[in-house]
Structures are given as structure tokens and as C-alpha cells.
């Protein structure tokens, strides 16, 4: 059973990471896209492009992505991602 954790609040990142298992994925949306700058993200991580653009972070994150495991996704990929995991957990 693998879960997709959806995080919208960057201040709750650590608690969210603590609750995740190794096979789980993390999707950063809304204000949580700023956590793309967090160095300790070892899990499979996705960030919603629309929310990155809204915060002026899109180019910054893309330039940093060379050695990072963060994938930038759009809403269509967000919808499909929820189906690739067994369930989603919105970490509120």
C-alpha cells in the first residue's frame, strides 16, 4: 500500500515526512511548494507547477532540479498521480 501525501502548508513538512513510509510519495501544492528548497527531501517528491509559477519559484526550482528528485507536474499529472498511488493523504 503506497500513499500520496499532499502537503499545502510548508510549516507542516517535518511532521508529514515523519508520517511517510519509504514507498510513499509527496506532492507539494499551494504554499507548500516553497518546500522545494528544503534539502532533506529524500522521498519521491512532486511540486505543482501552477502554484510554483504563482509564487515566482518556477524558474528557480527548474534550475536547481539537475540533481534533485523533485518532479514538477501540472494539474493533469496531479489527477493521474492520485491514481498511481493506492490512496491520498492530505496533510492538513
Amino acid at each position: 500500500m503506497k500513499s500520496l501525501f499532499i502537503l499545502n502548508n510548508p510549516t507542516k513538512l517535518d511532521a508529514c515526512l515523519n508520517a511517510m513510509s519509504t514507498q510513499d510519495g509527496l506532492l507539494l501544492i499551494e504554499d507548500a511548494v516553497i518546500a522545494t528548497h528544503h534539502s532533506g527531501l529524500s522521498c519521491v517528491t512532486y511540486a505543482l507547477e501552477e502554484d510554483l509559477i504563482a509564487r515566482g519559484l518556477s524558474q528557480l526550482v527548474k534550475q536547481h532540479l539537475v540533481n534533485s528528485n523533485i518532479k514538477i507536474i501540472d494539474y493533469t499529472q496531479f489527477v493521474e498521480l492520485t491514481l498511481q498511488y493506492d490512496k491520498t493523504v492530505s496533510w492538513l
Binding site: 499545502n8 501544492i29 494539474y75 496531479f78 489527477v79
Partner: peptide, 13 residues
């Protein structure tokens, strides 16, 4: 932002 995010999700789905 959640209401707007939810709307977007529904539209795209």
C-alpha cells in the same frame, strides 16, 4: 487556496 485548488482539480479531471 483550497477551494480554488479543488475547482481546478475537478475541471482537469
Amino acid at each position: 487556496q483550497g477551494q480554488f485548488s479543488a475547482l481546478q482539480f475537478v475541471r482537469v479531471a
